[in-house]
Amino acid sequence: MMEKIRELIVAHAGLPQGAEAIADDTDLYRAGMKSFASVQLMLALEETFEIEFPEEMLNRATFRSAGAIARAVEALSPGSMAA
């Protein structure tokens, strides 16, 4: 899943640097992700993982890093205890 999330970040977050520069805890906003890019990333995540982010998760914290995104996707995926 991490691999896929990293791919989507590279494709949508509009960061100046490549995938190798994005650690699990790299702050994507500090790395240069703007608000429109974060919208594109959210839509791509929903499409790819067939999930829907509920209203209370649509905040900056959810999409701050690859790791934070993975935790959110995990929590929303079918079969997850939190879903």
Binding site: E55, E56, L58, N59, R60, A61
Partner: peptide, 8 residues
Amino acid sequence: PERAATVS
């Protein structure tokens, strides 16, 4: 604020 500053 960290959680509640949502898109809505």
